[in-house]
Simulated scan of single mutants.
Amino acid sequence: MNWKASISILAIIFSLTSCVTNKELTYFGEKETDEALIEQSIRMNEKPYRVQVGDLLSISIKSTDKRLVAMFQPVAAENAAGIQSEQSLYYNGFTVSKHGNIEIPILGKMNVLAYTLDEIEESVKKKLLDEYFNKAEDLFIVVKLAGLRFTVTGEVVNTGIYTLFQDRVNIIEALASAGDITTVGNRKDVLIIRQYPQGQKIHHIDLTSVDAFDSPYYYIQPNDMIYVKPLKQKSLGTGTTLVQSITTVVTVLSLVTSVLVLSRNL
């Protein structure tokens, strides 16, 4: 083996052992962007969520007539702060059926598919006023998603199924729940697998670019699955930091040197 071949081998080694760059680890890029444009993009993406099949709704009915309210609402276990547990919400919430309906005691079935939460509130309130209650001021309705449930898997610190009790959750908050992306996770191409009436669809978002704020997938939806692919550095088993890369190079150099010495002695 001559010196030219050795140089070629070393060049290949250096290309394979390149560490993960700061650019690959930085969210939303390093270029200057008008903050006003970013805020505008986020506001444009904040469209009201429309209910889908499989969603779990929490419907709270309050009135001065406690006895009448009890007819329409199941008794739910609450903690000392008056907050229902996730398990309690699962058993006492209202699941949207495959036909897009929920069934409220006494009121019966109501179609809520593709409705916003505000629209469902108005529908429930109107039906109660038309058939049971007398005064609008005596009736208060609150409809919320019973937790926003999603799955995070791939190159994150803690994979798993998470539930956040918020009206809106962006992808950064979702990833933070899983401990964030690891140093060998691909932030440039994060996959979001979303549920639709026709089935599942895969979407892509680049979290290293400020264009992520413009993405319709910046805000996640119930039952989304977020998958973070590994960078090539992991699949090759090479260093992810400069120190690790140098260690790998030194190890391989020692191997090449040994091979050269042995080949000359043969």
Rank of each mutant, 00 (worst) to 15 (best):
F94D: 00
F94I: 00
T95E: 06
V96E: 07
S97C: 10
K98E: 11
K98R: 05
H99C: 03
G100P: 02
G100A: 07
G100L: 05
N101T: 13
N101M: 13
N101R: 08
N101L: 11
N101D: 15
N101Q: 13
I102V: 10
I102F: 00
I102N: 00
I102E: 00
E103K: 11
I104F: 06
I104K: 08
P105D: 04
P105Y: 08
P105M: 10
I106W: 04
I106Q: 11
L107D: 11
L107N: 04
L107W: 08
L107H: 05
K109A: 15
K109G: 05
N111K: 14
N111H: 12
N111C: 07
N111M: 09
V112W: 02
V112A: 09
V112D: 05
V112R: 03
V112K: 05
L113K: 05
L113R: 03
L113G: 02
L113P: 02
A114N: 12
A114T: 10
Y115M: 14
Y115L: 13
L117Y: 01
L117N: 01
D118G: 03
D118K: 12
D118I: 08
E119N: 04
I120L: 14
E121L: 06
E121A: 12
E122Q: 12
V124A: 04
V124N: 06
K125R: 15
K126W: 03
K127T: 08
K127I: 04
L128H: 06
L128C: 06
L129V: 10
D130N: 06
Y132Q: 02
Y132A: 08
Y132K: 07
N134A: 14
N134D: 13
K135V: 09
A136Q: 09
A136E: 15
A136D: 12
A136S: 11
E137Q: 15
E137G: 06
D138Q: 13
D138I: 08
D138S: 13
L139G: 02
I141Y: 11
I141W: 09
V142K: 07
V142A: 12
V143G: 04
K144A: 11
L145N: 00
L145S: 00
L148F: 04
R149H: 03
T151S: 08
T151Y: 02
T151G: 01
T153C: 04
T153K: 12
G154C: 13
G154S: 11
E155W: 07
V156G: 03
V157Q: 07
T159I: 01
T159R: 05
T159S: 15
I161M: 14
I161D: 12
Y162D: 03
Y162T: 03
L164P: 02
Q166A: 11
R168S: 05
V169D: 00
I171P: 02
I172P: 10
I172V: 15
E173N: 08
E173R: 03
L175Y: 14
S177V: 07
S177L: 06
S177F: 11
S177E: 14
S177C: 13
A178T: 10
G179Q: 10
D180V: 07
I181W: 09
T182N: 01
V184D: 10
V184S: 12
V184I: 15
G185D: 10
G185K: 08
N186Q: 12
N186L: 13
N186P: 01
N186S: 09
R187I: 14
K188C: 07
K188Y: 05
D189M: 14
D189N: 15
